[in-house]
Write a protein that binds this DNA or RNA. Structure first.
Length: 682
DNA sequence: ACTACTTTCCC
DNA sequence: GGAAAGTAG
């Protein structure tokens, strides 16, 4: 089984660890191993990783390589634009007969991995894949009727009360027999260009990528801040968070291991009667659960990163306002908590979860910018950028999840400021221009008496902006926009009844992965166009500007003092007329955007079926009872909930929902109902 | 132990 | 905004 031919390829992706790595364990068990990482960022389309994310990946791979070498084999890295053909190259040059990898659940990976499986199997290669990223595979977690959950709390409750525990973590292999890679050409991967190196150098001071560092971070958290997690979680300061998210994103630490270790603490604290500790554990596990849920949603609704799950906002006239978008990015909105957060993000690639909610909620509700812009900015700037988690977060904020926030409720950053940063320390750290402002005014400088401002050296509108949109104005504007939305919706319904729209949905065919064309075009590094063309369009409101290249990072230490002087071209001052623009809403007529790509849906249905089927051989047998009835292993994995849930998920990938829009059937949907209270089956 | 208030927390 | 939990009477 080992030696020359017959070795196995272990294909590393976002599972950059040697501990509790089922694919690696299977490879080791089968004999000689060729460990491979293929870097093909172009496959990600517009989700080409941002600078900080690439920096992390680079370091994590180096770390993995040295671990693998000490176990007996190097990590072969390949630069590619087509992962599957690179895999074939590796097969040919090593004589491998088996391929092992761990599952991913984002839509791109689902399709690519399916193709890998098909193509390699056709070449006579044995391909096996495993769960290493989740406590439970998405298809194993269903409600009493065997349907996927559509709200988080029900989902998580079920996860915590599954009839079988998540698999226990595997130990790292003691030794790896190397496959013959003498004829296998590796590539040196380049993750940063010259202009990025200086900014990246600073990241190393705060972060240590790599699986064994992840393990240390986990231990440190569990033995330290975890017990106070419940108490500290409302602070803007991130010192007491776990800092595990980037490690988790790249699979440097196994969620199953996190879960097991945390549960051990929970039992311990429960026995001691330590209520606060137990509470902390529950809350921390919930955040792990949210990560699970993001994969669950992505798997069951593979378009959730680019399309709202609920369609009730389909006609919402998002405000296409480049200068507001820029002010938000630069941390110059005039709301101290928002601005502090955005500057921290800019400077460090990191943001406490609370503050992510604050800045994104401000983005969607006050500025009413299209959420996918914000999501893309997060993608480009966050160290732990994660498509599934970010999509879930932004959809939650936008109120397009069944259990999301009410759309017409605006959070007030001033009040949130006093809640999360009562003494203004966070704001003062990131907004030096406000550092001398007394706490009484720190979260609403626009109300401060002139004398106070003068004493603090603040000149509003000059060295710190006035609010670019007032909260009251935002509320009024939101009401107005909703009215407009209902009108558009009604118009669309009328159009459908008159048959105007018929041909469109069917005649347009998109590429299999169905990034809307206009978004793909946005990949360029040009500045974003200012005036959206008039007329019918698809997803125009969701064009995603790319700003990766314009990001010039600020050194952490300097961030406070020099922020405004740096990167001048990309950080222009907030336009002085910004507030005047607030009424210049440019409405977007999405009237005929009905472009649910049925071809894609069919394809996706087929492609994901393999995952479930494959997993049936390789995952816990005990789960089978929960999943058999409905599908017998034949029906596509993510066929939609067929009950009353199906309809709210307008335009979902379901294939059946494509022609019957929720709005058609429920003209009263403008009441912004709470979807969780829709009649439930059973 | 009951109700009528408050505060808290929602992915 | 509203359920849910906490608290005062």
């Amino acid at each position: 089984m080992s030696g020359g031919g017959g070795c196995s390829i272990v294909w590393f992706r976002r599972d950059l660890r040697v501990e509790d790595n089922p694919a690696l364990a299977a490879g080791v068990r089968a004999g000689a191993v060729v460990a491979v990482f293929i870097y093909a960022p172009e496959e990600e389309g517009q989700y080409y990783p941002g600078r900080v994310s690439r920096w992390w990946l680079k370091n994590s791979l180096a770390h993995l390589d040295s671990s693998l070498r000490s176990l007996g084999t190097p990590l072969i890295t390949k630069r590619s634009t087509d992962s599957v053909s690179s895999l074939l190259d590796v097969v040919k040059s090593t004589g491998a007969t088996q391929l092992f990898f761990n599952h991913l659940y984002d839509p791109l990976s689902l399709i690519r991995d399916h193709r890998a499986k098909e193509v390699l199997t056709a070449q006579g290669i044995t391909v096996r894949s495993f769960n290493s990223d989740l406590l439970y595979e998405p298809w194993d977690v269903n409600d009493a009727n065997g349907q996927p959950f559509t709200t988080f709390s029900a989902f998580w409750e079920r996860c915590l009360s599954m009839p079988y525990d998540p698999q226990a973590p595997l130990l790292p292999p003691k030794r790896i027999i190397p496959g013959d890679v003498s004829r296998c050409q590796g590539d040196t991967l380049v993750f940063e260009d010259e202009s990025e190196k200086a900014s990246n150098a600073l990241l190393a001071r705060a972060w240590s990528p790599g699986w064994s560092n992840a393990d240390k971070a986990l231990t440190a958290f569990i033995n330290g801040p975890l017990i106070e997690y419940a108490k500290n979680r409302r602070k803007a300061d991130s010192a007491t968070t776990s800092f595990l998210s980037p490690h988790l994103h790249f699979g440097e630490v196994s969620v199953k291991k996190v879960f097991h270790l945390v549960r051990i603490k929970q039992v311990l604290w429960a026995n001691e009667g330590n209520q606060a500790g137990e509470e902390s554990v529950n809350l921390f596990l919930k955040s792990i659960g949210l990560r699970e849920y993001s994969r669950y949603i992505s798997f069951n609704h593979p378009y959730s990163h680019e399309r709202p799950l609920l369609g009730h906002l389909k006609f919402f006239p998002w405000v296409i306002n480049e200068s507001h978008f820029k002010a938000w990015r630069q941390g110059r909105t005039g709301y101290p908590l928002v601005d502090a957060g955005m500057r921290e993000l800019w400077a460090t690639g990191w943001l406490h979860d609370r503050i992510r909610v604050v800045v994104s909620s401000f983005f969607v509700k006050v500025l009413q910018l299209p959420w996918r812009w914000g999501m893309k900015y997060f993608w480009d700037t966050l160290l732990d950028a994660d498509l599934e988690s970010d999509a879930l977060g932004w959809q939650y904020i936008s109120g397009t999840l069944p259990d999301g926030r009410e759309f017409d409720r605006i959070d007030n950053p001033q009040f949130e400021g006093y809640k999360f940063d009562p003494n203004g320390e966070y704001v003062r750290r990131w907004l030096p221009e406000l550092s001398r402002l007394p706490t009484e005014w720190i979260h609403h400088p626009w109300n401060a008496p002139e004398s106070v401002l003068q004493a603090a050296g603040i000149e509003l509108g000059s060295n710190y902006p006035l609010p670019i949109v007032g909260i009251d104005a935002a509320k009024a504007r939101l009401q107005e926009a909703l009215i407009q939305m209902w009108q558009l919706e009604a118009a669309s319904r009328a159009a459908i009844e008159n048959g105007v729209e018929e041909g469109l949905g069917d005649s347009t065919e998109l590429a299999p992965i169905a990034f809307p064309e206009d978004i793909q075009m946005e990949e360029s590094h040009e500045p974003v166009r200012n005036n959206p063309p008039v007329g019918p369009r698809r997803y125009e409101d969701q064009m995603v500007p790319s700003m990766t290249s314009s990001l010039v990072r600020v050194e952490e230490e300097e961030a406070s003092s020099d922020l405004r002087n740096l990167a001048e071209e990309s950080r222009a001052e907030v336009p002085t007329n910004a507030t005047a623009q607030q009424n210049a809403r440019e409405t977007v007529n999405q009237g005929v955007l009905q472009n649910v790509n049925r071809n894609t849906q069919v394809q996706h249905n087929n492609t994901t079926a393999w995952l479930r089927n494959a997993a049936e051989d390789s995952t816990a047998e005990s789960s089978s009872s929960t999943r058999r009835e409905r599908d017998g292993g034949v029906v596509p994995v993510w066929s939609p909930p067929s009950s009353s849930y199906a309809e709210p998920f307008v335009d979902d990938e379901s294939g059946i929902g494509a022609s019957s829009s929720y709005l058609q059937n429920h003209p009263q949907s403008h009441r912004l109902m709470n979807w969780t209270r829709l009649p439930q089956t059973g």
